[in-house]
Design a protein around this nucleic acid. Structure first.
Lengths: 160, 160
DNA sequence: CCATATTACGTAGTTAGCTACGCAAATTTA
DNA sequence: TAAATTTGCGTAGCTAACTACGTAATATGG
């Protein structure tokens, strides 16, 4: 059945389709972890990977690296800490700061998860490589960060 | 500052970047409506447009046209009804069904909103036309609906 | 024509983002 | 060095999607 109204809308539906697609991938990823019987959530890989590289980071630092709002990071990392994957200690140099790092459990489990992530990378790469999607994403991010959707549209409105 | 860790992750970060970008556009769209002092929400345009074309549709029918889950449609349309943009009547032919249509207020306001949407379309088109993004989206949707992220990744895992 | 299956809608509860705001610690500046 | 500003974290409350489940009405099939 080919009955997708949003597609008919052309550029008007652009953002909605992007959202629909990314939500779909997210849900599918969650189901994948469940089926593999792995007790992690779809966005945790970000923290695993980032702390593998940087060892110790504060909440705000993580938020900057991932370009997400800091309360989102608190939510994610609190869950990961509760699941035993993260250590959290107060910084001695700056007592406002909470330093996060991977726990032994995390380091233990990482190779197992890495296999899954590598398979994910491979499957996406195989599926999409001809589309040059990463470069397209680079461009989208660059252009919208230079001037956002709102500012572009308001500018357009003022031309009339 | 160029410090985006997710970008470093290549295809691993693909879905996250998609989500981050679409969330960003959504928030920006909401702010735009606020700044224009227009009391509608970013996803309402879908219903306005769909019911402009089809006049009368049930909840499930809308969900099918938009390829979203039906509870999402209930949430959206309930708000729109509360805001006076939708009429909702029980179907005579099938008393389970609730028939939704645009109110007079909606039809009244549509031209005003259409101007905003057209400006949005134009601004996105101007910004992205060389990227061929709609065709890329077509392909992404097609490929992932044929075989989702999970099934591709599990298949990949089983190769080892 | 009655039992069963399907459909349409609704509710409850989850997740992942976000903004706005507050507080306390650190830093800067006058 | 005291006052003002900035920074880092935390909480509260919002939005928009989702799944799972329940119920009532309709459709189907033996």
């Amino acid at each position: 059945m080919e009955n997708d109204f949003i597609k008919e809308l052309g550029y008007l539906g652009f953002a909605t389709r992007l959202k629909r697609l990314s939500d779909m991938l997210l849900q599918d990823g969650r189901r994948m972890y469940q089926n593999l019987d792995v007790d992690i959530e779809p966005n945790w890989y970000l923290i695993f990977k980032l702390l593998s590289k940087h060892k110790q980071l504060g909440v705000t630092e993580i938020a900057q690296h991932l370009q997400l709002a800091h309360p989102s990071i608190i939510t994610i990392t609190n869950k990961m800490e509760k699941a035993g994957y993260l250590l959290s200690i107060r910084s001695k140099a700056d007592s406002r700061k909470r330093v996060l790092s991977l726990s032994e459990k995390a380091i233990d489990k990482l190779p197992e998860y890495e296999i899954i992530w590598q398979a994910g990378i491979k499957s996406v790469k195989d599926a999409l490589d001809d589309l040059n999607i990463l470069n397209t994403l680079d461009e989208l991010e660059k252009r919208f960060s230079k001037s956002g959707f709102q500012s572009r549209t308001l500018e357009q409105l003022n031309k009339n």
